[in-house]
Design a protein around this nucleic acid. Structure first.
Length: 346
DNA sequence: AATACGGGGAG
DNA sequence: CTCCCAGTATT
């Protein structure tokens, strides 16, 4: 595959066959940035609703910077990878305070914003500012490893380095084509060069190593399999009137910064904690709830309880709060916790 | 170089 | 069920 031919073909293909109706296909760097953050390890269909709702509440970087991180997390609830939301807010404040409300144009400067790595910075720089910078996301890795026959798991350092160099070398000479080119990389990977590649309609097929050698199914080299451990936790659904007891999770770690139910290693620890909060009854446990993460499997035992009278001391010292159930459902909550609270309504 | 970090869509 | 998604930050 000739290097100049790649960009030329891709741009032509994108203009005729690529996607043109995605809501973030605009030149406003704020909207591009927001979409890129939401789309990190997250599929387009999952992002669409969140993106629309988010823009309605925060139409520009100034409104986002002026908001509380809690409100940002609430709008992010269910999307996952919550450090993205915390970094998003932090970055908005940076743009307002350090750049006068304007996003920097250079990829390297964009990359200093929290949550913006090289690929995201390149996406913003190319889409919003027509900079000659290459992205390297899952789509591009799929296209390049197949097109150029590059074996080895792309998460591996050496392979990744090779892919960045190749992606840079393939950039079109004319920066005015960067929007169509970058979009073309994503569109080709998303609509043609996917799990089951549609090589017959691919603009690169005659130069594609994987297509020629019948190796599209084995490229890119899949991630090495690893056994995922199982962890257990007991979650307390403590109700007091129409309120539920929730605690703020630490900023780092799983579900960082979100409100969540208090957790215990076992039911004995739960009973002991509950007894200190006042008088009431611990009810029979609900059926276990399984929640699967990328790196482990969590088995949740939900334990409902009713607190009739609060103890004079004890409650205040902890990091939690009694929140009306309806209001709690609007806060930033982990997906399984939200499910449990919804179940409490019925 | 490895690991942590969510949730869901697609086959 | 398995794989992996418009990746980044931390260790």
């Amino acid at each position: 595959m000739l290097q100049d031919s790649f960009a030329t073909r891709l741009v032509a293909w994108q203009k005729q066959h690529g996607r043109h109706d995605l809501p973030w296909q605009v030149s406003d760097p704020y909207r591009v940035w927001l979409s890129e953050i939401m789309l990190q390890q997250t599929q387009v269909t999952a992002v669409l609703e969140y993106y629309a709702r988010f823009l309605l509440r925060f139409p520009d970087v100034a409104s986002l910077a002026a908001a509380s991180v809690d409100e940002v997390l609430a709008l992010w609830s269910g999307l996952g990878y919550y450090s993205r939301a915390r970094n998003l807010h932090k970055a908005a404040v940076m743009v307002v305070d350090e750049f006068g409300g304007h996003f920097p144009v250079q990829r390297e400067a964009l990359q200093r914003l929290p949550g913006v790595g090289r690929s995201t910075a390149a996406a913003i720089a190319s889409f919003a500012f027509a900079q000659r910078e290459t992205i390297l996301d899952g789509n591009v890795k799929r296209v390049l490893t197949r097109c150029f026959g590059i074996a080895g798991f792309p998460g591996e350092k050496a392979v990744e380095k090779q892919l960045w160099a190749l992606a840079e070398a393939l950039l079109p000479a004319d920066s005015s084509q960067m929007t169509a080119y970058t979009q073309g990389l994503m569109d080709l990977g998303a609509t043609v060069c996917g799990r089951k590649p549609a090589c017959t309609v691919c603009p690169m097929v005659d130069g594609c190593v994987a297509a020629r050698q019948g190796r599209t199914h084995e490229l890119p080299t899949p991630r090495p399999k690893k056994a995922v451990p199982t962890r257990h936790t007991v979650m307390l659904l403590a109700q007091h009137g129409d309120r539920i007891w929730l605690e703020r999770r630490p900023p780092s770690g799983i579900w960082g910064g979100l409100l969540s139910l208090p957790e215990f290693a076992d039911s004995m620890a739960l009973e002991a904690w509950f007894a200190r909060q006042g008088s009431g009854d611990v009810l029979p446990s609900w059926p276990e709830l399984e929640h699967v993460f990328t790196h482990y499997r969590l088995i949740i035992t939900p334990v409902p309880a009713r607190l009739d009278t609060l103890a004079a001391t004890g409650v205040q010292e902890s990091a939690g709060q009694w929140i009306p159930l309806q209001q709690a459902l609007e806060a930033g909550l982990p997906a399984p916790v939200k499910r449990l609270l919804q179940r409490l309504l019925a």
